[in-house]
């Protein structure tokens, strides 16, 4: 029974990693860059959530919806703005320059948070109503149920969007061949902005679910989930959307199981050894494929 309980905890944690990993993988797939500031968008989202929750003296339903919507909006706008200001001018620069800029943006966001809120952790009220479900010995918290439900819903929507809408097809086309996509009339800049918007929106959702379970936010809160989600994206195959979903879930389960059966202290080390093993054994990840280019 304990095993199943740990498995569900892992699924719930993994769902959050998966949501964040989707942002990494989509941006990588389309803009061919690693946005290392992605994790910090989660941190900003959590601060926004805490501010919006405190200021609202609204009805019970509105007191959930208001901070959630504000958090989603701020993260989306932040993601698009970061792309426009920091990454777009470097569209034709070397990948190393873009990578260093991304790390710079990450430190910038952390420093701004440190400047405004100080280094102490700030309490965040959970926006998920308190409830729980018990099936025999298995206990499901409201946070876990909400996390799983929301993630499944989001992933279905995203899969439908990418596979069946025109804009989704355009995103896949840009990911494969920017020039050819332009010749179809696709505006590449708009598509990249949209990708950042979707990635950051998903980060906002991950942020809400994450702090609702964790309860606190500090300037460096986004770094760890961000880097673990990056590992998840690489594990699943960076650039692959199903890969990010799968990688996130697997990583969450590995972490949860390691904490329960091996050692809490070693859990992070085990998670990161997964990255090393993947890079050694199958650098393209579980679902990643090498693109065959014919000339």
């Amino acid at each position: 029974m304990d095993f199943i309980q740990q498995f569900i905890n892992g699924l719930s944690l993994g769902s959050i990693y998966a949501l964040i990993a989707l942002g990494y993988t989509m941006v990588y797939g389309i803009a061919k860059m690693l946005n290392f500031a992605h994790g910090d968008v989660i941190m900003v989202g959590a601060y926004v959530l805490s501010l919006a929750a405190v200021k609202a003296g609204l009805s019970p339903v509105m007191s959930i919806i208001f901070p959630v919507v504000i958090c989603m909006l701020s993260c989306t706008v932040l993601g698009v703005t970061i792309e426009k200001i920091a990454y777009r001018p470097l569209r034709n620069a070397s990948p190393l320059a873009v990578l260093i800029t991304a790390i710079g943006v990450s430190y910038f966001l952390q420093s701004v948070a440190l400047l405004i809120f100080g280094s102490n952790q700030r309490k965040v009220e959970s926006v998920i109503p308190e409830f729980s479900l018990s099936l025999g010995e298995i206990h499901l918290s409201g946070e876990a149920i909400t996390t799983l439900g929301v993630t499944v819903l989001i992933m279905i929507c995203l899969a439908l969007f990418i596979n069946f809408t025109r804009v989704g097809k355009a995103m896949r086309a840009v990911s494969e061949d920017k020039g050819a996509a332009q010749l179809m009339g696709v505006n590449v800049n708009t598509t990249i902005s949209l990708t950042f918007a979707i990635g950051s929106f998903l980060a906002a959702i991950a942020s809400i679910l994450f702090v609702s379970s964790y309860g606190f936010v500090g300037p460096y809160s986004g770094a760890m989930p961000g880097i673990k989600a990056f590992v998840a994206a690489v594990l699943g195959g960076i650039g692959s959307i199903p890969g990010a979903m799968l990688g996130g879930i697997i990583l969450g389960i590995i972490e949860s199981m390691s904490k329960a059966y091996i050692s809490t202290e070693l859990a992070d080390a085990i998670v990161f050894s997964v990255l090393i093993i993947v890079l050694l054994v199958k650098p393209t990840g579980i679902l990643g494929r090498k693109r065959i280019t014919k000339v």
Partner: peptide, 20 residues
């Protein structure tokens, strides 16, 4: 070099052609 979208189906490629 044709540059069709390899990972899209024939129909999807044609639909992209009509994107505008």
């Amino acid at each position: 070099g044709r540059r069709v979208f390899q990972e899209l189906t024939v129909d999807e490629n044609l639909d992209m052609g009509a994107y505008a």
